[in-house]
Design a protein around this nucleic acid. Structure first.
Lengths: 198, 198
DNA sequence: ATCGTAATAGAACAATCGTTCTCTTCGGCG
DNA sequence: CGCCGAAGAGAACGATTGTTCTATTACGAT
């Protein structure tokens, strides 16, 4: 195994083991559901011991929250990155189409098992739990960020259109999982275009 | 096997205990998630003993399947009932609007915790499981039934519109749960109208 | 050299998971 | 009447749940 060999290995502020743990946990929670994956499984596959895990996280739910927060951060950076790559002379229509394609690509590439937040919420019925708090925060960010993008693209009634696009993305994520991308993607793109370019 | 003993409409108790069991299980599974509710809890609240439960169902998953099948049947009958109440002289536009209102009402009245099928699928990642089979069947029925209704209402391109409405209902169910009906309902109705009456 | 932190290793915890078992009781029908 | 199936009551199963514990090793900073 690694660790002993490299001498110049940096002390890593963010604990090598913690990273392995969170990374494996994220994959397992997403692919197989949260209650469906036990800590034993996570620890075994991450090659991390219980003591180490409980030093980094107070419990399983905290690990779930960390998983969702990382997912949230990943999506945010993917969106802001892509936003900055849009040329300044792009028309409003181009911007909207790019946004729609961006959402579709994100679903196709990173979310074949549906929406991590919707799925997590299905398993955590307590609306006051930390998990649901993260879900709410993510959704608020997405709606707000969408509205300001649409506003920037000169879309009339950006509030209403943002509301519609939030719905359509939710549906595309669900549909991509349950019906397949080949069905969900074209339906999403066509409907989103129709709604945004009215 | 079941007895064909009696000639005159067998009293078919439909087993009082079985009904209690399935009814309580459905409510608990929907409201708190499937893996989140143990059999002990179900049996205690339904006042049914383990032996009785295992005589009616081979195991927990079979109970889950029964819960989803009942949900499917309930939704189907609600839709066909409402469909028959539309007057014969209703215009295509009226029919479509009635359909949209019907979907919105169903969500507001019976599905404040989201879509039972989407939620169940989040907890059952195995696409070949019985649970996922029921989910697929329900979604296929809904899409087909929507398409034929739209066709009957004289909507152009009923296939595309049906696809859009399936998406929007998924989103409205999810949004009703996570964002609240007061946000989700108007967004759904407005977007659905826009899409269907283009 | 020593202290503190991080990680490993593994035993053990009570609680709950879904499931199977035996034994008794009830109620309707032949 | 006797019979049989449905339901109740409850003990018990092994497995797994999430969590806590002690003991040991490695490495960097003081």
């Amino acid at each position: 195994m690694e660790g002993v060999s490299s001498i110049v290995a940096a002390p890593r502020k963010t604990s090598e083991a913690r990273e392995r743990l969170l990374s494996i946990a994220s994959e397992l929670f997403y692919r197989e559901g949260i209650h469906g994956v036990g800590m034993d499984r996570v620890l075994a596959e991450a090659h991390v011991t219980r003591a180490t895990m409980y030093r980094h996280f107070p419990g399983k739910e905290a690990l779930v929250v960390a998983y969702l927060e990382r997912e949230d951060a990943d999506i945010r950076s993917r969106f802001t990155d892509a936003e900055q790559q849009v040329p300044d002379d792009a028309t409003g229509t181009d911007r909207v189409d790019a946004l729609i394609a961006l959402i579709a690509d994100d679903i196709e590439r990173h979310h074949t098992r549906g929406c991590p937040f919707i799925n997590a919420a299905a398993e955590f019925p307590d609306a006051s739990s930390d998990v649901r708090r993260v879900v709410r925060r993510h959704r608020e960010w997405f709606r707000d960020s969408l509205r300001s993008m649409l506003e920037g693209a000169g879309v009339a009634e950006p509030d209403e259109v943002a509301g519609s696009l939030v719905m359509l993305r939710d549906a595309a994520l669900v549909g991509g999982y349950l019906d397949g991308v080949e069905v969900a993607r074209p339906a999403f793109v066509a409907t989103a275009r129709l709604v945004a370019h009215r």
